[in-house]
């Protein structure tokens, strides 16, 4: 198992059109990977964004948000996937749920911090104009929260795309399958190729989201967002 031999194997695998187009090949697996990622991200967003925005608006629940995000750092993702799998869910379902679970704290923090951090002067002005709470949240706090919200969404989505490969360890699909299959059959060139594919996918998604983040942030807030990102 010499290094250059493995590299050559990896290149041969990646160069073979059949490894891409065959049923269950790289293209299929990438498709599965993206579908699972989108589902997990939507699921997490549906729960975390409204909750985070509301908690931020009400100024409550900070301790819970902190505790949640700290615990989620210590909890191994693999454990959650395997436990969900043993509870009778298949590899893919378990992974989508687990990935969503770990994305929730990230989105929650983004929404909470964003809304909470809205300029108090703007909030006071809106109240002074007689806006009810709902409109203050919708028309003042949320637009001001966009930089942190967008950053949270980007981090969460990239994290989801990075978590989905673990599905392969619980018998699911996605690009992690290339790695797990390579390990199982001792084709280490394929393991290397799988690692490179997963890494590339994450970097591409992160790059695209960085662009989207730039366009999502209203122009007057961009300077501040850049300052936040640079820290």
């Amino acid at each position: 198992m010499t290094g250059d031999g493995v590299l050559a194997q990896a290149l041969r695998y990646l160069n073979d059109p059949l490894s891409w187009t065959a049923p269950g090949g790289i293209l299929d697996l990438t498709g599965q990977h993206l579908v699972m990622s989108v589902l997990a991200a939507l699921l997490a967003a549906a729960v975390a964004l409204p909750l985070g925005a509301w908690l931020g608006h009400a100024g409550r629940g900070a301790a819970v948000v902190v505790a949640l995000s700290n615990t989620s750092r210590a909890l191994p993702t693999l454990a959650v996937i395997l436990l969900l799998a043993t509870a009778g869910l298949f590899g893919d379902t378990a992974t989508v749920l687990a990935a969503a679970l770990f994305a929730v704290p990230v989105l929650l923090v983004g929404a909470y911090e964003g809304v909470r951090g809205a300029d108090p002067a703007a909030r006071d002005a809106a109240r002074g104009l007689g806006m009810p709470g709902g409109r203050v949240l919708w028309q003042v706090e949320l637009p001001l929260a966009v930089p942190l919200l967008a950053a949270g969404v980007r981090t969460a989505v990239v994290q989801v795309v990075a978590t989905v490969p673990l599905a392969a360890l619980a018998g699911g699909g996605g690009l992690g399958h290339v790695i797990a299959f390579g390990m199982g059959t001792q084709r280490y060139g394929q393991v290397l190729a799988g690692g490179l594919l997963v890494a590339a996918l994450c970097l591409v998604v992160d790059g695209l989201l960085a662009l989207a983040q730039r366009f999502a942030v209203p122009r007057p807030l961009r300077a501040r967002a850049a300052a936040t990102a640079a820290r």
Binding site: L7, V158, I179, V191, L196, A199, C202
Partner: peptide, 18 residues
Amino acid sequence: YTVPSLALFAVLAPLLGI
């Protein structure tokens, strides 16, 4: 940091030994 741990281990293992 954007590269997932699974991918990093998978890239390193064939090069450094399982």
